[in-house]
Simulated scan of single mutants.
Amino acid sequence: MDTMVDSWTDREQVIARAALERARTRAVDVLIARLRTSIEALASADEVWQLHDFLSIERHTMEGRFDFRLGGILFVLAGLVKDELLAMEELEGLEADKLAKVKAMSRF
């Protein structure tokens, strides 16, 4: 068993949840900005339905991406760092091994 995954203090869970929520808020802000541009360019019913399909996919993706489960949270946090929705500094307070793992995984 990987003790980094199995062993999360209450404080670390609070830090990870808060970081995940900040990243989620940023992702929503990016989506809204993208939608503002897309909506202005709508010119047909087909484009409206394409936008609907896009939003359905985005919702599904975001709901999965921001689901807090300790078993995979290091991978989630690393992906958010890689996508620049989260900074390593926002994870300060996590165990050094967890921070190192997130930093290493965010490079790929």
Score class of each variant (00 low, 15 high):
I57K: 12
A100M: 08
L99T: 04
R34M: 05
L86T: 08
D2M: 07
V76N: 02
L85K: 03
W8C: 03
S44C: 02
S106C: 08
V76K: 06
D97A: 15
V14R: 14
E84V: 03
L86M: 07
L20T: 04
E84G: 05
Q50P: 00
T37E: 10
Q50I: 00
A27Q: 13
L35M: 13
F68Q: 00
T3V: 10
W49R: 13
D29P: 00
E89G: 13
Q50D: 14
V102D: 04
E40H: 07
L86E: 05
V102R: 06
V28W: 08
G93L: 05
L51T: 03
E58L: 05
L51N: 05
L55K: 05
F108G: 10
A87F: 03
E95H: 14
L70A: 11
E89F: 01
G72I: 04
E95N: 13
A100F: 05
S38A: 15
I15G: 08
A18T: 14
L80Q: 08
L20H: 04
F108Y: 12
R65K: 12
T9Y: 07
K82M: 06
E47Y: 03
L74D: 06
S44Q: 04
L77E: 03
R22I: 03
D10V: 10
D83N: 12
V14Y: 10
K101H: 14
E21H: 07
T61R: 15
L31K: 11
E89L: 09
A104K: 15
A33P: 00
G72A: 09
R17L: 12
D53Q: 12
R22A: 14
R69M: 06
G71D: 11
F108R: 15
I15W: 06
D2C: 09
E21Q: 12
D97I: 01
R26A: 14
E21S: 10
S7V: 09
R22E: 12
D67M: 08
L51P: 01
E12Y: 07
L85I: 06
I32P: 00
W49A: 05
K101N: 11
M4P: 00
F75A: 15
S56C: 09
S7A: 13
D83W: 02
R34Q: 14
G71A: 09
Q13R: 15
V5Q: 07
A27M: 09
F66V: 01
K103T: 05
Q50G: 11
L55P: 10
M105G: 00
D6C: 07
A41D: 06
W8V: 03
A78W: 02
Q13M: 14
S106I: 11
K82N: 09
L91I: 08
R22S: 12
W49V: 03
V102T: 05
T3S: 14
L80A: 01
D97R: 13
L70E: 11
R34K: 14
E63Q: 13
S7P: 00
G93F: 03
S7C: 13
I32V: 15
F75T: 14
L51C: 05
M1W: 12
L99C: 11
G79F: 02
F66N: 07
